[in-house]
């Protein structure tokens, strides 16, 4: 990390640690705005912070680490995509579109809109690729939530005007989830390590049992893999093309979710399964994030299909060409 990234990290860490999973839009969003975090990915010439995707990784990862219940990542991505479209205010993103775009007019539904109540516009995947932006003023919201109780709304629109952008909001949303998974796994690992060092059974801390040590060591490897995948994807986005890497990274992060959440709950025993204990805001977010912006079947079919179509003699050459 460079100096600016250290500052960004310290700032986001301090703020998110205080807000955590119980923050609300009404009471706390102004604190996000005060630090201009939603303009993180907006170019400087558009009045933003002009951050890179590696900067975004720092912030999104910390949002995951602290199970932050505010749409920082979604607002930052939406603001970037809205640059030059004339849409203003707080934007958010959606993961699925079910409808048709004719010219600049959309009729249909968008699903998985993140904390969209009170948002000014939504960016959704375009039915023919790219993304489109739609003002919420012309639509009707049906509230819905994911496993962690996070708002994921459905919106219906009837012949409303939209703005098109070529950048792919689905890829960016997948990046946000990979970064959050990376952070959330590190948080669950830290909680698990702390817990097994404190909790005693058979007259000694759980941490002294080899079975417990080996399980958390496996977890640490998975958390490391998810974090490296997130970094690899951020670098690819900064290079300007991440079609290969987004599939690889989301698949790897998703795999880590399964192994990591199992290990975290097993280490905690029954207390980790209670509503009062702070593990579930992390693990329920992880289980939700595994599906959001593409689950395994989506990304594995895409990546596997691409590699198979290119053929055996291109496989390694294409993989290494990503970084050369």
């Amino acid at each position: 990390m460079n100096d600016q990234q250290h500052m960004l990290s310290d700032m986001a860490d301090g703020l998110f640690a205080g807000l955590g999973p119980s923050a609300t839009m009404e009471a706390h969003w102004s604190q996000i705005e005060a630090l201009a975090l939603s303009s993180l990915l907006l170019p400087e010439e558009a009045g933003g912070f002009g951050g890179t995707w590696q900067d975004a990784l720092i912030v999104f990862r910390l949002a995951g680490y602290h199970a932050l219940s505010l749409p920082v990542a979604e607002a930052a991505i939406a603001a970037r995509l809205a640059a030059g479209t004339g849409l203003e205010g707080r934007g958010t993103i959606a993961s699925r579109t079910d409808g048709t775009v004719e010219g600049d007019c959309f009729t249909g539904a968008v699903h998985g809109a993140v904390m969209s109540e009170g948002a000014d516009f939504i960016v959704a995947p375009g039915p023919q690729g790219g993304s489109f932006l739609v003002a919420t003023a012309g639509g009707e919201r049906t509230p819905s939530v994911n496993l962690a109780g996070e708002s994921r709304d459905v919106w219906h629109f009837e012949s409303v005007p939209v703005a098109h952008v070529t950048e792919n909001v689905f890829v960016m949303g997948a990046f946000a989830r990979v970064a959050q998974i990376a952070g959330a796994l590190d948080a669950a690992l830290a909680m698990s390590v702390r817990y097994v060092n404190e909790r005693k059974q058979f007259g000694r801390p759980l941490a002294k049992f080899q079975a417990v040590q080996q399980s958390l060591a496996t977890f640490a490897c998975e958390a490391a893999a998810a974090n490296c995948a997130a970094m690899g994807l951020a670098q690819a986005l900064d290079r300007g093309n991440a079609h290969y890497e987004v599939a690889a990274a989301k698949l790897r992060a998703n795999r880590a979710v399964g192994i990591g959440t199992s290990a975290a709950h097993q280490a905690h025993g029954a207390i980790g399964f209670t509503q009062e204990y702070a593990l579930h805001p992390i693990t329920r977010r992880l289980w939700s994030a595994r599906s959001e912006f593409g689950g395994d079947s989506h990304w594995a079919a895409l990546l596997g299909g691409r590699v198979a179509a290119a053929g055996a003699d291109r496989f390694w050459a294409d993989l290494t060409a990503l970084t050369d």
């Binding site: 893999a225 290969y244 299909g305 496989f315």
Partner: peptide, 29 residues
């Protein structure tokens, strides 16, 4: 990848995707 050709079954395609994902990540690590 050579043996299954350019259009493998869904199950093999998914496996290739998973193995490539793991290879990509381990290479970075």
């Amino acid at each position: 990848i050579r043996a299954v050709g350019p259009e493998p079954s869904d199950c093999v395609r998914a496996l290739i995707g998973q193995l490539v994902s793991e290879t990509w990540t381990l290479r970075l690590m």
